[in-house]
Simulated assay, not measured.
Amino acid sequence: MNRPLLVLRPEPGASATVAAARAIGLAAIAAPLFTIRPLDWVPPTGRPQAILATSANALRHGGIGIAALIDLPLYAVGAATAEVARYAGFGRIIVGDGDADAILALASSHGVASLLHLAGREHRATARPGIAIERRIVYAADPLDALPEAARAALPGAIALLHSPRAAALFARLVDPAGIAIAAISAATLEAAGTGWRAHATAERPTDASLLAVAAKLCDQGL
């Protein structure tokens, strides 16, 4: 059974996920729960050894301040963030396919002692012994007050893709979970969604491809 697949992440990620989902035969609908806007920020006066980017949106919305940093190595969480970093002009990009803690461990193994973290307003403040992390908040993700019409029209019976704990918690507040299945990108995201869903599954890895794979299994099982 090919149930409607709700893609709730912000644009332009939502459209990218929809395209990937449709390429494997899933009936995906873009219904972002957040709008992204840049925030004013000032680069640090000191010079970090490297940049940490845990979200592609930090690089999309970092503005002109990014230009002064592109000669530094950049540690990126995920291939999508790395791709945007290349577009922004960074030449030395180290990509991790885990979470922020994993990329910090990789940076530590490379001898990095200071990082500038370009982050969103609602970021998770990760830390690592031996690494001094300075943060700049460069964008905000503002939540919607109601579910987009495209998503409301597909409920119930849909499968929702949850890309973050924050999205999971917001989605749970906006809907009746009983008729909806969810596919979560991580265990923390599934926990934030709470209980009462028709069915649920968690991606084996925190990647879009893995999330779509578990959503496809839910569809195949008729859940």
Rank of each mutant, 00 (worst) to 15 (best):
R3L: 08
R3K: 10
P4V: 08
R9Y: 10
P10Q: 10
E11A: 09
G13V: 00
A14H: 07
S15L: 09
A16T: 15
A16P: 11
T17K: 08
T17S: 14
T17H: 13
A21I: 04
R22Q: 15
I24S: 13
G25D: 03
L26S: 04
L26H: 04
I29P: 10
I29H: 05
A31R: 00
P38K: 03
D40V: 08
D40N: 06
V42Q: 12
P43W: 03
P44L: 13
T45A: 15
R47I: 11
Q49M: 05
A50D: 02
I51H: 01
I51M: 04
L52T: 01
T54E: 01
A56W: 11
N57R: 03
L59Y: 08
R60K: 10
G62L: 09
G63K: 01
A67S: 15
A67R: 15
D71W: 14
L72H: 09
P73D: 05
L74T: 10
L74S: 07
V77N: 07
A80W: 14
A80P: 09
A85S: 06
A85C: 05
I93P: 10
I93T: 05
V95A: 07
A100F: 00
A102I: 03
I103Q: 08
L104P: 06
A105Y: 02
A105H: 07
L106R: 14
S108K: 10
S114I: 04
L118F: 12
L118M: 14
E122P: 00
E122K: 14
E122L: 14
A125L: 15
R128V: 00
I131A: 09
R136V: 14
I137Q: 04
V138S: 05
V138M: 06
Y139L: 05
P143R: 11
P143V: 06
D145K: 00
A150K: 09
A151F: 09
A154V: 03
A154M: 04
L155R: 13
A158S: 14
L162C: 12
S164Y: 01
A169N: 03
L170E: 00
R173V: 06
V175N: 06
P177R: 03
P177L: 08
G179Q: 01
I180A: 07
A183Q: 12
A183V: 06
A183E: 11
A184D: 09
I185V: 13
S186A: 15
S186N: 12
A187F: 06
A187C: 06
A188K: 13
E191Q: 13
T195M: 02
T195P: 01
G196I: 03
H200G: 15
T202P: 09
A203V: 02
E204P: 01
R205H: 14
D208I: 02
A209M: 04
S210C: 04
L211T: 04
A213I: 00
V214G: 04
A216K: 15
A216G: 10
